[in-house]
């Protein structure tokens, strides 16, 4: 592989050199295979980016591009001067990081533990059942959690009272500092099975011969996990981690929106809901677009930084191997 790369670098200088043309000819199938998808991505993902101009306009739907009133950076300034923006940013990052710590690692643990189960039928049963909550909407999940954590005959308080851990029922949902934890817990519980699928697939891709030879060497269970399973899924883990870091700021708002209540609003409001409320819902297209651009910028910086670090530390990246 190395030599090919070097040739490629050398050839960059002369676009229409003989070698390059020859190389193009050699790669005609690769070009043929990628061309339609390059066209596709440009049409469907890049052309709509003209919409970013809206961030600088007092955009009114239906008016021509040149009939719109241009307002410059007005909406960026409004956003950065809004104290509430920093509050929602704090909440967003806090919950995203929690979700990265738990929502990302626990599915890997689950996949590894599942892999250790020898009874195939049992393994499949666990897989299928743990993936079910993914299909239950957040409306239902939020309502379940509210009931379980209620002081009015909620199951959690009943257990805590019975075990004499607390004397008075605790109103979990009314405590602002519990909110991030509760949302993260609910999220992990809902998505753990679903998110483990990809790691199970990665484990399935590890050659069984590696395990067999380790067995011959007399390696124990944990050694095998540490020396074969984990390195085997590391590329998958790393690329997903990098892409998730890029998404730290794109938290969505459904779960927070449905689980919050008036008493915890200072800890529950997140960026995406803020953008919806003060953007499109109010008819402020410019504000929504400006906030979207800010998010994109943050994401791209994050993903390329994470990629750079990962390449240095683990030798794995999402752009090149």
């Amino acid at each position: 592989m190395q030599p090919v790369n070097k040739i490629a670098q050398r050839n960059q200088k002369y676009i229409f050199s003989k070698k390059n043309i020859k190389r193009l000819n050699q790669q005609k199938y690769l070009l043929l295979m990628s061309l339609p998808f390059v066209i596709w991505v440009i049409i469907f993902k890049y052309i709509p980016l003209w919409g970013w101009t809206m961030a600088f306009q007092q955009y009114i739907p239906g008016k021509g591009f040149f009939q719109q009133e241009w307002v410059g950076l007005k909406y960026f300034i409004i956003m950065f001067q809004d104290n509430y923006f920093y509050l929602v940013l704090r909440n967003t990052l806090a919950m995203s990081i929690l979700s990265l710590i738990f929502g990302f690692t626990l599915p890997i643990v689950l996949a590894i533990l599942l892999n250790e189960i020898t009874k195939q039928t049992f393994k499949r049963m666990v897989q299928t059942i743990s993936y079910l909550p993914h299909f239950v909407s957040w409306v239902i999940v939020a309502s379940l959690f509210n009931k379980m954590l209620s002081i009015d005959d909620g199951v959690v308080n009943n257990i805590l009272m019975a075990l004499r851990i607390v004397e008075q029922p605790v109103q979990f949902m009314a405590k602002p500092n519990f909110f991030w934890g509760i949302v993260t817990f609910a999220d992990v519980w809902k998505e753990i099975g679903w998110n483990s699928i990809i790691f199970l697939a990665a484990i399935a891709g590890i050659s069984p011969e590696l395990y067999e030879s380790a067995m011959v060497d007399g390696a124990g269970r944990f050694k095998k996990i540490w020396h074969i399973t984990l390195p085997g899924i590391l590329p998958t883990v790393m690329v997903i981690l990098i892409m998730s870091i890029g998404n730290l700021i794109n938290i969505g708002f459904e779960k927070q929106f449905l689980m919050r209540n008036s008493l915890v609003r200072d800890y529950s409001d997140v960026l995406d809901l803020y953008i919806l409320d003060y953007g499109i819902s109010a008819g402020r297209w410019a504000f929504g677009t400006a906030a979207g651009m800010f998010k994109s910028l943050v994401s791209i910086i994050l993903v390329f930084t994470a990629n750079g670090i990962s390449r240095k530390v683990a030798g794995i990246g999402i752009i090149t191997k």
Partner: peptide, 26 residues
């Protein structure tokens, strides 16, 4: 009222109530 700025401020005022009134009552 069509003005988007008005709508945004109106929403902020409403939600200030959502946030603060419960704490006042309790």
């Amino acid at each position: 009222i069509e003005d988007p700025e008005w709508k945004a401020a109106d929403d902020r005022i409403l939600k200030t109530g959502y946030r603060m009134i419960p704490a006042i009552v309790m």
